[in-house]
Design a protein around this nucleic acid. Structure first.
Lengths: 128, 128
DNA sequence: CAGCATCCGTCAGGATACTG
DNA sequence: CAGTATCCTGACGGATGCTG
């Protein structure tokens, strides 16, 4: 999903589609949602997040945190101690967003078997 | 977003995060949502979709249609006439999904200015 | 501890030509 | 008309080493 989407307006229903794409772009990264979930219930430190998201690289953790902070979804608090201590917390806005995402989860749960069946049927009939 | 996500289970809240990522993966493509909107209210032909989505390439139109069909979100009907005539319609499942996506649009609308402000503040303080 | 810099592989997606 | 087949580019994301 490209950031900086300029959303050209001469398209049927584009305004709505672009808005959705815009917000999806904010959370469709591989780690964004996990981090939002992790920070939803209070401050978490950098290392804490690293442990909570097995497999994430330092680079991606930093990048994802920066993007979420930039959009106002995460609050970053630096305690000027030594060693440094940085805490991340999801903003109210982010928690609201998560509520809507939960709606998608419910949809997925309801139609899980239907989707699986459709896939099987499709992949099945394909190579024949 | 990688398809075929195996969703390793030894992660905090991973089940939920994976479910969301899974459904997001289905619609976070550049054209998926636009096509779902276009086909939500009745059958549309290939060329019709091509016209309705300015900028899309034949390749991406075909790929997106195939993926949506594979997941059971689109129904593909071939009329064996000459010239060929193929029609696509969103399934009931897809229309339900779109309802939930609309929730995201509302969130975006409510927080549009807040997000813009956060970005400006962030980008502003960055190079100083 | 909490990062930034660098290199590199993979893949979504664009452009274009060809076909049943 | 409705695709398939190639080629190509850029963005996303992984691995690793260095630092205030």
């Amino acid at each position: 999903m490209s950031r900086g989407n300029s959303c050209v307006p001469d398209q049927v229903g584009s305004a709505e589609a672009c808005t959705i794409l815009d917000v999806l772009g904010r959370v469709s990264g591989k780690w964004s949602i996990g981090i939002l979930m992790e920070t939803a219930h209070g401050p978490v430190r950098f290392t804490g997040l690293e442990r909570a998201m097995p497999g994430i690289s330092r680079r991606m953790l930093t990048l994802t945190l920066r993007n979420l902070e930039r959009d106002g979804l995460l609050e970053r608090t630096v305690h000027p101690t030594v060693p440094p201590r940085v805490e991340y917390t999801a903003t109210e806005m982010a928690r609201e967003l998560y509520e809507h995402l939960a709606g998608l989860t419910q949809w997925a749960d309801r139609h899980r078997t239907a989707v699986a069946a459709a896939r099987e049927a499709f992949d099945d009939g394909a190579h024949r």
